[in-house]
């Protein structure tokens, strides 16, 4: 009854072993030239992602770059590696599918504030609470860039947009608080105007075994120019790092840091490793497989069918 569609096996190609491989250069990592507006903060995030790949000697094929929809979410096209540009707001569940089924890959997700906290808001909460291993960088510009200046869930009160011509009336969400409350095990904040800091946060996030979240302020020069000047010393602002004595495992202290009014603090607010879903599922699998040791897959199913007679 079943017509098994046969799929021909691929010829494998001899490839040099990893030890002989030189770390990738920026040229090898860069793909399309970004379509962002000149001066857009997203350029700096991309450049630092390249740096991360270079510095940490990641191979093209060992990472996946995933995004939803938005200006920032165009990210994967600009990276020379396996990547996917998924639908608006759903990058996290898509990335979860990769993370849980392919422990050999680093999963990086990039996106905007609308993608993360509006249409994808619920996925953000659940991916955080499940502690799925991946790194998520939200390029927060306080506005909908791609659709040309509508209010975003992080737009401050009073922000004049095409949907709030009198100024925004809805209270903005605080991404840091959102992440901490949702149970994210790594929560950090940075800004595109401080490249070294961005790289530092990305490295720490990548090394975290769990769901690591970075809010990266990333200015939309087109629709929200100057939004983050107060955090940029070159524009007369202050870049205030998380105090040295802050205990990153203290959830309430992290929450208090997040309450500091704009420009607020930058750095790691919260880092408290706990078992990932990846690890917990692997443990369930290990235990289940103990009972079927030595059996081929079809024999496991046969055992089940024998009970259905």
């Amino acid at each position: 009854m079943s017509s098994i569609t046969d799929i021909p096996a691929r010829n494998s190609n001899p490839a040099p072993a990893d030890v002989e491989r030189k770390p990738l250069t920026k040229k090898e990592i860069a793909a399309d030239h970004p379509t962002w507006c000149p001066g857009c903060g997203d350029f700096s995030v991309l450049a630092l992602y390249f740096k991360l790949i270079e510095k940490r000697k990641l191979w093209h094929e060992k990472i996946t770059t995933i995004a939803g929809i938005g200006c920032s979410s165009r990210f994967p096209y600009f990276v020379q590696a396996h990547g996917a540009h998924f639908i608006h707001g759903r990058a996290l569940p898509f990335a979860t599918g990769i993370s849980l089924s392919r422990p050999d890959l680093h999963v990086f997700v990039f996106g905007g504030d609308g993608d993360a906290f509006s249409i994808g808001g619920n996925h953000f909460n659940h991916t955080a609470r499940k502690n799925i291993k991946m790194t998520y960088v939200v390029m927060d510009n306080w506005v909908y860039g791609l659709t040309k200046k509508q209010t975003s869930p992080t737009s401050p009160l009073g922000f004049r947009s095409k949907t709030d011509m009198w100024g925004a009336v809805d209270y903005p969400i605080n991404p840091m608080k959102q992440a901490i409350a949702a149970g994210a095990t790594f929560v950090a904040r940075t800004t595109h105007s401080n490249p070294n800091h961005v790289l530092q946060m990305m490295e720490a996030a990548m090394d975290h075994d769990g769901f690591s979240f970075i809010e990266c302020l990333s200015e939309c020069v087109e629709f929200y120019e100057g939004a983050f000047d107060a955090s940029n010393p070159r524009k007369g602002g202050v870049f205030k790092e998380v105090p040295k004595d802050h205990d990153v495992t203290d959830e309430l202290a992290a929450y208090r840091l997040a309450s500091d009014p704009f420009p607020g603090y930058f750095g790691i607010f919260y880092r408290n490793p706990k078992p990932t879903k990846n690890a917990r599922e692997a443990e369930i699998i290990r235990k289940s497989r103990e009972q079927v040791q030595g059996l081929k897959d079809w024999e496991i199913l046969q055992k089940t069918f024998d009970r259905l007679k």
Binding site: I66, P93, F94, A95, T96, G97, S101, N122, I284, I285
Partner: peptide, 23 residues
């Protein structure tokens, strides 16, 4: 899990289809 696989109960059906497509 007996076969080395896993099934995830998601927050909603959109997450579920997205996750399956991701996998």
């Amino acid at each position: 899990p007996k076969y080395g696989g896993t099934f995830v109960q998601c927050e909603d059906e959109i997450a579920a289809v997205s996750m399956a497509i991701g996998a």
